[in-house]
Design a protein around this nucleic acid. Structure first.
Lengths: 125, 125
DNA sequence: CTAACTGTACTAATCGAAATAGTACAGTTA
DNA sequence: TAACTGTACTATTTCGATTAGTACAGTTAG
């Protein structure tokens, strides 16, 4: 399970959303897997149930999970959802590229940074 | 001169900071160039002078500009400042790479996106 | 010197998004 | 029936960003 960073300034709501998206992207959570209940996760993170519920609503709106009243929330096995996540990641990354470019980084600079970064990450897995 | 986006949610303060950083990175503003006065820029952007002053304070703290009481604020010609900006841009970019990587983008995906993005940007200049 | 400009330094008030608190309703299951 | 599940509200709190207002200090032109 992922961690929350209360100091980062990033909304808890978004952190929970991204946490589950990553768990699904990494294959740790697969289609049909059940998520913790709203109240259970809120308790675990010492966070308000409303905040968790908001995250689940966002995840469901994006097709990442589906929720059933009285039963629980489950990881969706919709492939379109995964591609939507990829598209979102692409957009975010392109925005980062534009920003870095405006600040003076060249394409070669960025490619070098990517190779360094992904190489390090591989060692950690 | 740059524009402000009041809808984006990004703090106006930061937008002004980044605006001048980019103008310097692009060479439009060079060492010794005078910035608009705090009050003049606040008036132009229809923004509170305190907000502009905060931006100038941040820029000065990062060595991008220097301010002289009674005279005005000027672009610094300190090369270290430029490298500090580059370092900051690098850090932001590496964070974006990590995030994209966690969401399933491969290094090749990212390199492809960089080439597409920077190619488009060049056409616009 | 004076007036008008510069940057700087405060405190108080306002605004809005995020999160919390609390309650209630509806469906499932043992 | 009891205990769980998700869902839907409203009210409140909290915090950061911004605004508002005032004041002080240095520079420059008249």
């Amino acid at each position: 399970m992922f961690q929350l960073d209360f100091k980062s300034g990033a909304p808890i709501c978004d952190q929970i959303v991204n946490g589950f998206i990553k768990l699904k992207a990494l294959g740790i959570l697969k289609g049909g897997d059940q998520l913790p209940s709203v109240r259970a996760l809120a308790s675990k993170f010492s966070v308000n149930p409303n905040t968790v519920q908001k995250s689940y609503a966002i995840l469901e709106a994006n097709g990442i999970i589906y929720s059933v009243k009285g039963k629980g929330s489950f990881i969706s096995d919709d492939e379109n959802a995964a591609s939507a996540v990829l598209n979102s990641a692409r957009q975010d990354f392109v925005a980062a590229v534009r920003s870095a470019s405006e600040l003076g980084l060249t394409a070669d600079d960025m490619i070098k940074l990517i190779k360094e970064t992904t190489a390090k990450e591989d060692n950690n897995l």
